[in-house]
Structures are given as structure tokens and as C-alpha cells.
Design a protein around this nucleic acid. Sequence first.
DNA 1: TTGTAGGCGTTATCAA
DNA 2: TTGATAACGCCTACAA
Lengths: 352, 352
Amino acid sequence: MGRTDRHSVSVDKLATSPTLEDVARRAMVSTATVSRCLNYPSKVSEETRKQVLKAVDDLGYAPNFGARALAAKRTNTFGAIVPTMENAIFARGLQAFQEELGRHGVTLLVASSSYSPELEEEQIRALVARGADALLLIGHDRTPRSYAFLEQHKIPYVVAWTFNGDQSRPSIGFDNRKAMARLAGHVLSLGHKKVAFVTAPRVGNDRARERFEGVQDAMLEAGLDPASLTIVETPYSIANGAAAFEGLMSDSSRPTAVFCGNDVLAAGALTKARSLGLDVPGEVSITGFDDIEVAEIVSPALTTVHVPHRKMGAGAAKLLVRMRNGETAVSPIELEAEIKLRESLGPVVPAI
Amino acid sequence: MGRTDRHSVSVDKLATSPTLEDVARRAMVSTATVSRCLNYPSKVSEETRKQVLKAVDDLGYAPNFGARALAAKRTNTFGAIVPTMENAIFARGLQAFQEELGRHGVTLLVASSSYSPELEEEQIRALVARGADALLLIGHDRTPRSYAFLEQHKIPYVVAWTFNGDQSRPSIGFDNRKAMARLAGHVLSLGHKKVAFVTAPRVGNDRARERFEGVQDAMLEAGLDPASLTIVETPYSIANGAAAFEGLMSDSSRPTAVFCGNDVLAAGALTKARSLGLDVPGEVSITGFDDIEVAEIVSPALTTVHVPHRKMGAGAAKLLVRMRNGETAVSPIELEAEIKLRESLGPVVPAI
DNA sequence: TTGTAGGCGTTATCAA
DNA sequence: TTGATAACGCCTACAA
């Protein structure tokens, strides 16, 4: 039905993608048998299986995913939406996420939101429409519509890259605020009083906000006025980090330590320091956050906060698989972020 | 049909994703009208449009992608398969690719092959099954089955990151061999005679192979015996670059210049040089390939080949869109790769 | 072990 | 301008 019969198979070859029906015809069995053979090989006799697989091979058959999802209501595909893929911040975690998913037979679809909640909302819809069974999201900040949508569609999701005691969502991550406070505390204990903070835009980015609060916490703790903190807000990029740093250093009262909201910004600052002929950490200390690969290869090596990228990625995958399988009461998981002291940080050197 | 009628809508809300039919019922029109309203708003009266959109909004309706693809036979989704997402080599190009696609209303799906032709074959099938209308692939090396599959399914694709005169496939890229030969030629003109080449595994990776051939070309040109080139083959990673470099330098007869197949390897070599206390370029010169961001932030900054990442990505997107729209005779596009001379390269210093 | 047939959520062709 | 309705390709009871 639907298709008129043809005399030769070769006509088919020139046409378009073969379907289950084509395979069935060639293997001289029903479509049901082909489907079974592909999905539950054990439920098919050895002989027919061979025939079918040969037909599949001959035809170069690939199941139509949409049709399959439509019929089976499960895609074995998870989605991940990260703020950016252009730098390495999320690369390692995503890689681990993917590897772990692979072990469970699920495929990963990745999208990026460019740090925009509206764009993220679109991406969420797109991935769900494409049949994502579950989603990995970064941070808690997103539009109410996004949450409503996830709720309504009953899409399991986990929030990663952050851990925040008072959030009840399934999540896995570390306490950005605490980690940054620890790093900043250490820096201040080295005698730095004039400090600056270069951060990504904080609205719509709870990680950035929490890191900022961490710096404030540390200042308070050290008896410094948080209001005296110079803040530069700029999107994550090496160039922006460099520009921000240059601005800071051209100021009449330079900071002796510059906290950067992440390693990318810090790498930019470091590079600019070099081109400015400024000694790091002699004249100014610089710190980052994330501990991506560049942190170790820049010179001087970057003092930063080591984020458990791989643990987070793999852990998120495990959580999500459990949730997809019906488990409902998954409690948030907190991981540790560790301070990495390296050469870019030094004690404050009194002016001569 | 199929669904039993319900008395209240709220039941639906608790159930699962709303369908076209749900929207239609709520807006009191037919599913055809809803579909039209979503796809060709102009073909629907102002009034019904409002009703429908309201219903869509109320219900949080998102079209089922699989069903849509099934019915429309077009997904407006392209796929890209890159060897790796873990380092920055392909990130910028992919970003540009995505941006350009966005301008044409197409969504991007990304997968990575881990430099394995077999895995790439799987990914190709997966993306096509998911309805990718067209594919971006890296390099020409892949299994015959992959090419046969693409052929059979009539999937438009372009090969990027390489340009090779005698290949007739739609492609956009630069001549890896020529570019590397130019860089190597310059290095050799500085007096280097003992040179080494650290490369990614060359089988299944035409770019790596061509870069290698470029080095050989330059040696020949300079009157050196290509057989005297020390070769280390190792997967792209900072750690591997460092290890390879260390091995090279611990050799009794050290090279005075180390070519690296890409910037990641070179960054590793540079880092190791520092930890070994070797002066670059005083004692040994190091070069990379790609000109990714790290190339400028490492110290000394890396001499490398600038690859037109963004141009390639955007260009590939344009090509693919044209092909998807039925254009068939697209000829390969060659872009220029430019040598970037930076601090990591210096003249050979005669031993005292 | 295998086949038949209904349904999954859209789109698109016809009529109305 | 709108509404029926037949595909689209696959899965899965249910029957044989």
C-alpha cells in the first residue's frame, strides 16, 4: 500500500533512505520482525536474524529517529545546555557527562545559550521537542517559563556547576560562594588590602554572583569594607580579561590583587600584565576560578579554584539516568572545590 | 479518537506534553488550523490566530519534533561531527558555523568522533537518523561505508579544515601541507638542521598527514634529508605534548627546533620546556599549528599557523545551506592560512 | 517464532 | 479561511 510495486531493487537505491518496509521486503519477512530483530535480537530466530541483518547492511538502513521516538516514546537521548562552548570551562565536564551517558546507552545532544536565559529557554524547548528524555542545565538562574515548561513536560533535569544549600532542585556541584571566599580569604591573609574583582555579568548567572559574594564575605571577615571592592563586569573572554585588567592598572590607585571570576578572564589579565611589563605576583597578584588547562600553562601559573569538572559531569549523568528510570527522590550532591595555589599569587609587597 | 474525552482540561495538565490536538480542542478549531497557524501564520485569520496562540501559550505547547520531521521530511537541523570538543581546536569554527546557521533558521547538532573513523561512522548514522538535513565533516579520511551511506541517503555534506586540490568533494579549508611547508621552510631558513615533529596519529587524519608532508617538503627544499626527521606520534593533549617534548630533549642529540602538529601539543611542549628550565627559543624553538587562543597567552608566545577558523565555519554553513536548497555544483573553496611569527621561534644558536 | 494492524503527533492535500 | 484525512516510519500488543 502507499508504494507502488517496483520491478527492481536498484530503483530504490537511487531514491531515498530505505525504510523498515524496504528491509522487510528484501529479507522477505514482516516489518514487525525487522523491528524486533533490531530492538530485541534474542526474540528472533538465528536464521531470520541473519537475513534481516544482511538486508539492513545491503540497504544501508538507518532507523528514522523521529518515527522511532514517536512510536516508542523514549529516545535514549539526553540534552545538555551550557552557557558556552567556545572556551574550555564546560568542555571537560561535558566530556565526562557524555562518557558516562555512553555507558548507559544514551546519546547526548548539546546546545549553548550564550549566557542568555531567553536563549536557554528556546534551547530547552528545542531539545525537548527533539525528544530529549532528560536535561543537564547549568546553574539555577533561568526564566520562570523554563521551569514551568520542564515541570509541565515532566522532563527530569539536574542543575550542575553549583551547590546551594537552600535550593531544593536536583543538583550536583560545589558551593561557589564558599570556594571563592576561601580563596579570597587566603589572598587577603597575605596582606592585600586594595583588591579588585573582574567578573562576568552577574544577572542571570548565579555562579558569578555567588563568587562575587564570596569575595565580599572574605573582605568582611578580614575587616575590610566590601564597598571598597572595585568591580569590573565583562563577558568571559581573554580579550575582555585583558582590557579589564588594563583599565584597573591604569587607575591612579592600583589594586595589589585582582580576583577574576574565571580562568579565561584571568588568562587575559595575565597576558596583559606581561605586555604591560608588570611583574606578577611582584607588583600585582592575579587569581582565577575553574582550573581549566590554561591555568597551568600560563606563566606564571595561575592560582585558582579547582572545580571537579569530571566528577560533576559523570555524577550528573548518573543522577539523570536514575531520574529517567523513574527514581524521584534524588537529593542534591555537594562536591568539593579545592584551592590551587600557584605562582600568580604572592604576598603584598610594600611600596618603596 | 484514541483519547477518551475528559471533563476538565486540568487533567491534561497533569498528564504529559500537550499535542496539536489538545491545542485545537482548546482553541476550538481543527488541528489543521493550528498547524497552519504555527507554520504559515499569514494563512489564518487574525482572530483564530489569537485564539490558537493563546491556547498554545496556556498549554505550554511545543511541537513534537519527531512527528514534525516525519510529516514534513525536513528538520531544519544540520549536524556537525568534529574529532573532539575537549580542546579549543574546533570550538571557534563551530561557533561561527552555528551563528551562520542561526541566520538561516537552522539548528545545529554536534557530535564528536574522538578521531575514530568507526565512531564517526556511527555518529553520522545517528545524526542522519535524527533528521540532520546536512552535515559538516572534518577532513577527507573516513570509512568507505561512511561515504556510501551519505551517498545513499543523499545527505549534503561539506568537508572542512582541509583543502586538497585533487579532491572533488564539496569542501572548504586551507592547504595543510602548503601551510606547514611554509612555516617549516621559514624555520629551516633560520639555520635549524636537527628538527623533530610531534604529531597526532596520522592514520585516519589527513590534516596531520599533510602537515607532516609539509615538513618533509620543506626539508627537501632546504637540502635536508627528510629521513633525518625525528617523529613522535601521540594523541592531541597538553600532557602528551609535554611528554613527547621531554622524550625528545632527553635524547643525546637534541633537536634545535620542534614542530608540533597543533597548538595543544605545542603548549604542552612549552610548559615542559619551562619546567625543564630550557630556554625557548634560546636552546630550542617550538612551533604549533592552529593559532588557538592559548598560542598568544603562553609565554613565550607561540609561533604557529593561523587557521581561518571563523571564515571556515561560516563559509561551510553557507555552502551547506545552498546545497540543502538544491544547489548541486558547489566547488571547493580554498582559504589562506597565515604564518604567525611569535617569540617561541628563534635562529639556531651555535653551541659554544 | 512470526505476522497483522493500530497508533504515535505532524504536515499537507483536498474539499467545503 | 477552515476542516477532514491520508500519509510519514516505526513500535508493539495481539493473533496466528
